[in-house]
Amino acid sequence: MGLTNYAELAAIILFGIGFTILLIDRNLIKKNIGFAMTDSGMYLYLAAKGYISGRKAPIVVNGVTEMSAYINPIPAGLVLTGIVVSVATSAVMLALTVRLYRKYHTLNIDEIADKARKERE
């Protein structure tokens, strides 16, 4: 059983969509989801790099410790770290969103910037 390169393809498209939402969408919550998607895309890409067709997950079974039996454990470990980091970041962004909404009653970042500028003047 082998998987062809679909995972990387999907990962890149996911990254592209997420990055575009992060850049273009003016809604803060959508921006946040876009950021999370960007990260998922990258992690999918990284995890696909560790895959070797026909091999098993890196959990030692029956004491077999040969390289040829398992896939590469490093990308999985890195992704594990990354997932947690991205949840932390998105929690902070959401908290900022709540504070901003409480103050300005809108989620649109342009309107918020407008109102903040008026406040300054």
């Binding site: 997950a57 594990l80 997932i83 949840v87």
Partner: peptide, 21 residues
Amino acid sequence: LESPDLGITEAAVGAGVDSLL
């Protein structure tokens, strides 16, 4: 992709906590 650790973590953290937030 043979990474069960990631599967569990994504289900608990990504699908669970992130969406709850």
